[in-house]
Amino acid sequence: MSSPAIALPFGNVSFPRPNIVRFGMLTFLASEAMLFAGLICGYIVLRSGAGTGWQMPEALKNPGTITQTLVATALLLGSSFTLHFGEVRLLRGERHGRALLLLTVVLGSLFLANQANEWTHLHQEGFWFNSAGIMGSCFFVLTGFHGLHVAIGVILLTVSLIQAVFGLVTPEHHAFMDCSSLYWHFVDIVWVFLFTILYIL
């Protein structure tokens, strides 16, 4: 769109730059980062305070669970790549863009499915919010919060996918997909941290 402002010899022009939506999304993600920072700091304080009281429940230790979660992690990380290339292709108008987007949604859903399954199975093993010392509290609230974010991410990506299917995603108009993917990458990175502190360390 053309605005009279363009002509003027001034540093900052009034009409929004194309990246304005991205800018907003990034500020929002800064806030999200603080949310997880708060939770993780809580975890650190509690864990160091608990000392020997910090017990990894058997249910988590057993290789079955670990490998499953490892696979799920791989899927989630993979989805970041599928998303990235899907985006690039869509904007370049190349083939398989939508397919890759769809793949991303599927991978995300798989991760969620695994988490749901893991929760139920841990519950059966007697590991829950209020058990295994403070570990239960930390594990379920942190993974719960993250799972919630993944779910939202999946919804956002699904909407982008639908847009793409109806050809609403064009080199000019792709703000929504941009944000969804930023969000998705963020959620991925957070998971790397959570996985490390909750399953490995």
């Binding site: 806030s31 999200e32 603080m34 949310l35 997880f36 920072a37 708060g38 939770l39 809580g42 304080v45 509690l46 305070g49 608990a50 009281g53 910090w54 829950w128 919010f129 209020n130 010392g133 403070i134 239960g136 509290s137 379920f140 609230v141 919060f145």
Partner: peptide, 29 residues
């Protein structure tokens, strides 16, 4: 604000889901 949100969520779990983030028992602080 997000830090308060996190804390409020933890407090909510303490109140309703039996977590012990902030209680003196069970290694809470």
């Amino acid at each position: 604000v997000p830090v308060l949100s996190a804390a409020a969520a933890m407090l909510f779990c303490d109140l309703n889901f039996g977590t012990t983030f902030f209680s003196s028992t069970n290694f809470g602080q």
